[in-house]
């Protein structure tokens, strides 16, 4: 499973939000998309899913994504949007089952294969104990796992998650990153938009660094997260090191260039 981006660009109003991003994203890896606020990370995710009008091409296993139907694309790439709101108080199991929608033929009932997929997603994210609970009444950590289960129930070869760690405590952040890494190790292509640079450095196989809508660096975390780049892109002085075998990126202060980012 590969997703190839060919000069992908997005203009909202008259403002260019994404400028000619090209990259080839291969399966079996966890790829982090990092960059300051407004760098175009979410727009990149949405452009891949054809949720915003975009220039350039997205190739899904050598097929132009524009030639795929919405349902075909939905079966290929699962998506967990940023700050997912739930508009109705569904039970957890019912919410996870929504992930099977792309697979259902019109007017058909949910089948044994769908139930199996739902159960796999529930087991994988360990939300079995929550299955009868109302999804809008869960704690932040439970909710993050349940929403991830919903996306995993699609059983698509690719998964794009937008800021899955937002408002999670350190323990739950580690938990979600471990789940994403396990999913990648299972052969899926996982693309995660992240703000937590330490998490990105520690768990991702590869990082795409965006700034002002352009892809300014693409490589392993060690290649991408250098003090000079963090100063240029985020406007921060950061301490980059390791604790045992775990990478650490600690922002120390803003650089003196007056940037407020």
């Amino acid at each position: 499973m590969t997703i190839a981006l060919d000069a992908l660009g997005v203009t909202l109003g008259r403002r260019p939000v994404l400028r000619d991003v090209s990259a080839t994203l291969g399966g079996g890896s966890l790829i982090g998309v990092v960059g300051p606020n407004g760098a175009g990370k979410s727009t990149l995710a949405r452009a891949i899913l054809r949720l915003v009008p975009a220039r350039g091409r997205v190739l899904v296993d050598d097929t132009d994504a524009a030639a795929l139907s919405r349902a075909e694309l939905a079966r290929t790439i699962a998506y967990l949007p940023q700050g997912q709101t739930l508009h109705w108080p569904l039970a957890v199991e019912r919410l996870v089952a929504l992930g099977r929608l792309p697979h259902l033929a019109p007017f058909s009932r949910i089948g044994a294969a769908d139930h199996a997929a739902i159960e796999r997603a529930i087991r994988f994210t360990d939300v079995g104990a929550l299955r009868g609970r109302v999804a809008t009444e869960l704690s932040g950590g439970e909710r993050a796992r349940v929403l991830l289960a919903r996306a995993l129930a699609v059983e698509a070869p690719a998964l794009i998650v937008d800021e899955p760690l937002a408002s999670l405590d350190p323990g739950h952040q580690l938990e979600v990153m471990e789940l994403l890494r396990a999913q990648a190790q299972g052969g899926a292509l996982v693309v995660a938009v992240l703000h937590e640079l330490t998490m990105a450095a520690r768990f991702c196989d590869r990082l795409l660094l965006l700034d002002g809508g352009a892809l300014v660096a693409d490589g392993t975390p060690a290649e991408v997260l250098t003090p000079a780049r963090l100063a240029a892109v985020y406007g921060i002085d950061a301490w980059i090191g390791t604790a045992g075998d775990a990478a650490l990126v600690v922002p120390l202060r803003r650089c003196g260039d007056g940037r407020t980012g």
């Binding site: 919405r70 998506y79 929504l98």
Partner: peptide
């Protein structure tokens, strides 16, 4: 009915679930 269910996740969520 299905499109309405998918909209529980908002427009982006529904579109990403293959709803026209």
């Amino acid at each position: 009915g299905r499109a309405l269910d998918a909209l529980t996740l908002g427009e982006d969520g529904a579109l990403a679930l293959g709803i026209d």
